[in-house]
Amino acid sequence: MISPRYHRDIPQRYRLEGGKCTKCSYIAFPPRLVCPKCKSKSFEPYHLSREGKILTFTIIKVGPDKFSKETPYVVAIIELNDGARLTTQVADCDVERVALGAKVKLVFRKIQDEGKSGLHCYGYKAILL
């Protein structure tokens, strides 16, 4: 049962809400309590840019049980236009076409289901531009 954790993560998973350090402008995603750069504990809410580029990626050919029917698929580290980085799946693509530096945008997608009768869990994935 992952419902309570799923609910707590909604701001970051649905709306890409992170935190921006009010002292040094470091963007923390997911949000943090302490800035890893200047140790400040003062953050303001920050919505990440929805566009960026692929920094690095891997092609998953043998996936975990819940994703085993979706192989092959790409998981990438994306650098967004505001400098924040996140890890996400790259959807709707021929995996052979994915390349370092490729431009992407983040879209709202279903990430997984809690079994046949549980919650549908939503979040972000990247698609190639």
Partner: peptide, 16 residues
């Protein structure tokens, strides 16, 4: 629709 798309994801992108 992709395996990860449904009425909700389509609605969110159209409404965005």
């Amino acid at each position: 629709p992709g395996l990860d798309e449904d009425t909700i994801t389509i609605s969110v992108e159209a409404a965005r």
